[in-house]
Design a protein around this nucleic acid. Structure first.
Length: 427
RNA sequence: GUGGCUAUGGUGUAAUGGUAGCACUAGAGUUUGUGGAACUCUCAGUGGCAGUUCGAAUCUGCUUAGCCACCCCA
């Protein structure tokens, strides 16, 4: 006889079990509250999009596009991709739905699963959940600061501490090309001192060398020209304003001139929020984002300045767990209905509906026939009262109310039991 | 994509080539219409495929998954 096949979740993908649902729910509720306060509306876009939306939007040279997309051809011949991030889809929706004709800015939040083909490890999955906030149609630096504030608020609301906001500006189409050239020629003159990856980056995207953690590259990096010294007038002013707003908000930020994000659509402000853990272990970025003033145009829309970011739910949950963030039970059952005998079981079904109408949570274990086992269950879930409907009671039209603390029992008329139970619960 | 470590019931763990055992959990029960304790019984495992051997959880190879590092990011 053949062995039973053993199915398991695909690499890097997980079941989200009830105990984790509480955390997901908590994050979702927090996002929703904050979104309502700041005037963001929820949007959901398809999990599949045309592959080109991402390759054009995020940039062909990015890691996400080059090696992390789940793409496939449909029977009809379309080339689709499981979304690796949200921003490009929102920009697409903005263009497709003509949202430039709405009062600007347009503010959205979202929450859902995303997919990247990578080697999984802690805090890194092939299917992972993100929430995000995006503002389209506003170039003012005050929005950059407010987006950062929003993500900081959410993390704080989730009881996370020791948060550090890393910020940088990576310029725009005015100044970045010039800086890139400057940087490229600097690194080129010292190419021999760079690691092999960085020599490749030198050709593809010199900015990323700044992100390299290779020991070898550190001294070269340290002497490299810094973008902040080479921002154009506009970007410089914009960034200065952002920092002033952050000061005003008294947010704990750290200016990190090496912060370069992996997606090409970013302009000017970029940020990441990380946990400053004492033992030096990091989960990676909890939330990150920045300004993307050119994305809408790249995707074929009108020039539309925008800023936004996203948070990683699994990472946040992992951190919440280590900080022992707990939640009360979502369902407190105070009454348990135990039944004995065929007639009683039939009457129980209807009785449960009566309790539902009265909005009293009533637990049951209708599949169990032994009274003992049912009371054991009642005890386990912590019911205050048990209702016992046996053969005799069912025939007489009565039912027993048992106080699970004192053990006292009373017999009441079956048609009064909802009322009688409600009365006892109020005390 | 590259390298390192790991893998035993649902969970946590024993067994260094010779009967896969224990604890928890779960289910059923202990004068059959009454919970918490105790006790009894039951379900349930060597990730998968090969190889070495009289004999493999144990040794070897491959594979899968997890973890870690690189890379990158949420």
């Amino acid at each position: 006889m053949a062995k039973k096949p053993k199915f398991q979740t695909p690499t890097g993908m997980h079941d989200i079990l009830p105990e984790d649902q509480r955390y997901f729910q908590k994050i979702q509720n927090t996002c929703e509250d904050i979104a309502n306060f700041y005037g963001f509306q929820k949007i959901e876009t398809p999990i599949l999009e045309e592959a080109e939306l991402f390759s054009r939007g995020l940039g062909l040279a990015t890691d996400v596009v080059q090696k992390q997309m789940f793409s496939f051809r449909t029977k009809g011949g379309d080339y689709l991709t499981l979304r690796p991030e949200q921003t490009a889809s929102i920009a697409r929706a903005y263009i497709e739905q003509g949202m430039q004709n709405l009062p600007q800015p347009v503010k959205f939040w979202h929450l859902g699963p995303f997919f990247r083909y990578e080697h999984p490890q802690s805090g890194r999955f092939r299917q992972f959940w993100q929430f995000g906030f995006e503002v389209l149609g506003e170039e003012n630096s005050v929005l950059d600061a407010q987006i950062i504030q929003i993500f900081y608020n959410i993390l704080r609301e989730l009881k996370l501490k020791n948060l550090i906001i890393e910020v940088n500006s990576i310029g725009d189409s005015q100044c970045r090309p010039y800086y890139k050239k400057l940087l490229a020629s600097y690194f080129k003159s010292r190419e021999a001192a760079l690691c092999s990856d960085c020599r490749r980056r030198l050709r593809e995207n010199p900015l990323r060398i700044l992100d390299c953690k290779e020991e070898k590259c550190q001294p070269v990096k340290a002497q490299a020209p810094q973008i902040l010294d080479h921002l154009c007038e506009t970007c410089h002013k914009h960034f200065r304003e952002v920092l002033e707003f952050l000061d005003e908000l008294e947010l704990p930020y750290h200016l990190n001139p090496y912060l370069v994000r992996g997606l090409d659509y970013y302009t000017k402000t970029v940020f990441e929020i990380i946990e400053d853990s004492p033992d030096g272990k990091t989960l990676g970025t909890l939330a990150g984002g920045g300004r993307y003033d050119t994305l809408v145009k790249i995707l074929g829309g009108k020039e539309t300045p925008a800023v936004g970011g996203a948070g990683g739910m699994e990472r946040i949950i992992q951190l919440m767990k280590t900080k022992a963030v707990r939640f009360p039970r979502e369902r407190k059952v105070e009454v348990f209905l135990a039944q004995l005998g065929d007639l009683a079981k039939r009457k129980s079904l209807k009785l449960i509906e009566d309790f539902r109408e009265a909005q009293i949570l009533v637990g049951e274990s209708l599949g169990r026939d032994s009274l003992k086992a049912q009371l054991k269950m009642a005890d386990r879930i912590g019911a205050r009262y048990s209702l016992i409907l046996g053969q005799k009671e069912a025939l007489e039209g009565t039912i027993i109310i048992r106080d699970m603390v004192s053990g006292r029992q009373e017999i009441v008329k079956l048609d009064k039991v909802v009322k009688e139970t409600a009365k006892r619960l109020k005390k």
